[in-house]
Design a protein around this nucleic acid. Structure first.
Lengths: 202, 202
DNA sequence: TGGCCAATCGGAGGTAGCCTCCGTATATTA
DNA sequence: TAATATACGGAGGCTACCTCCGATTGGCCA
C-alpha cells in the first residue's frame, strides 16, 4: 500500500523529537507556542521543523488526529448504549476533554470544521458526524429537544472547552458546565410557564 | 475635580482619529488588528499611538468602557423587573452582545476579570456584580437552580459570544444558544428521571 | 570497504508586528 | 513674537514567522 520509502534514520529521529517537544510546548504555552523554541528544544534547525511540518496545523494534526479518531470510534460504539442521553453526555465529555488538551485548541477545532482545505477536516468531520448520530438518537427517543442542531451542540461543547481554558484551573468546572448544557438540551417539563421563559424579549 | 489641563488641540484630534480607526480595525480584524496599521490609518506615527494608548488594552478600554458601564446600569435597572428570569435573560443577551463586539473580545473580558492590574478590571467587575444580583434574585425566586455560581454563568455567556465569533455569521445563533443556557439554568421539572440525567457517569 | 548521491539538515535573511526612545516640531501663553 | 511645555514621528531593537539553498550525511552498491 505505502509505496513511499521509509524515512532516513536521522529524519525519523528528528521527526519524533519534534513531536515530543511540540507536545510539551503546546501543553505549556498553548497552540501558539513558538515554533523556533520547539525546534531548539528538539535540537534541530528551524528549517528541519518546517520540512517535516509545513505549518503549525500540520504539527497539531500529528499530535491530535489519533485522539479525534478515537473519539469518533467512541461515538459509534455508544450508539448501542442503553440510555441515549447518558451516551450523548459521555461522548460530549470526551469531546470537551479532547478539545481542551491544549490552550487554543478549541479555536483550531472550530476553524478546522469550516475549512475544507485543512488537513484535519476529514477527521474532525467524521467525529462530528458520529456525534451527530448520537444526538439524533437521543432526539428520536424524545429525551432531547428536537429543535436543536448538531452544529449548535458541538459549538457549545467547544465553547465549554474554551471557557475552561480561560480561567484558572478548577477540576470540577467542565463537569458543572457540561451539566448545564445537558439540562438545557433535555426536553423541558412541558407544563405551563417554564419552557417559554427563555424566549421572553427584553 | 479634573485638575488636568485640556489636551492640546492636535493631541485631541489625533486621539479622536486613533479611536475611530481602532474601532474600524477591531471590527474588521478582531482585537489583534495591527496597531501600526491603525496608526497609519489615523495619519499619525506609531509613537503617537503609544503615547495616547500605552498598550492594546488601553485602546480596548477606551472603546468599550462606556458600553460595559451601561451594561452594569442596565442590570441595576432590571432588578425591579417583574419576572426575574426574563430580567436575567435580557441582561445576559446584552452581555453577550457586548462581549461579541469584536472578534477576540470575549478572551479579553475573561482575562480582565482575573487580572486586577487591568484598567478594565473595576468596570468589568462592577458589571459582573450587578449581573450577579440579577442571578441571585432569580435563584431566590426559585426559578433558577440554586447550585449554579455567577462565575459559571458569566463564563458560559462569554463562551456563547466566543462560539458565535468562531463560525460564519448566523443572526439567530446567539438567541438559540442563549436559550439553551437559560433552559439549563432553569430549575428543572422535579419529577422522576430527568434531573438526574446530566449526572450519569460514563 | 569506499565512494556516490539523493535525502536531509541548518540557519541566514526577508517580512511583519511590538514597543521604546529621543531629536524635532508646534500649540499655547505671556 | 518669543519661550516653553506639550506632542509628534519614525528609527531601531526585539521576537516570531517562514523560505531558500549551500553544506552535510545516511544508505546503497560496487
Amino acid at each position: 500500500m505505502d509505496t513511499r520509502r521509509p524515512m532516513r534514520a536521522d529524519a525519523r529521529r528528528n521527526y519524533d523529537h519534534l513531536l515530543v517537544q511540540a507536545g510539551e510546548a503546546f501543553q505549556a504555552h498553548g497552540v501558539d507556542a513558538s515554533l523556533e523554541d520547539i525546534a531548539r528544544a528538539a535540537g534541530v534547525g528551524i528549517g528541519t521543523l518546517y520540512r517535516h511540518f509545513p505549518n503549525r496545523d500540520a504539527l497539531l494534526l500529528a499530535l491530535t488526529e489519533e485522539r479525534f479518531d478515537r473519539s469518533r470510534a467512541s461515538a459509534e460504539a455508544l450508539l448501542d448504549a442503553a440510555d441515549p442521553v447518558a451516551a450523548l453526555t459521555s461522548w460530549l465529555r470526551r469531546f470537551i476533554a479532547n478539545s481542551a488538551t491544549y490552550r487554543g485548541l478549541p479555536e483550531s477545532v472550530t476553524s478546522v470544521l469550516t475549512n475544507p482545505d485543512s488537513s484535519l477536516y476529514a477527521t474532525c468531520h467524521a467525529m462530528q458526524d458520529a456525534g451527530g448520530r448520537l444526538l439524533a438518537r437521543a432526539q428520536q427517543a424524545g429525551a432531547v429537544r428536537p429543535d436543536v442542531s448538531a452544529r449548535d451542540v458541538f459549538l457549545m461543547a467547544a465553547a465549554i472547552g474554551w471557557a475552561n481554558s480561560q480561567v484558572p484551573d478548577d477540576p470540577e468546572r467542565i463537569e458543572r458546565l457540561l451539566s448545564l448544557l445537558i439540562d438545557g438540551l433535555s426536553r423541558p417539563y412541558a407544563g405551563p410557564g417554564l419552557p417559554e421563559r427563555a424566549h421572553i424579549v427584553s
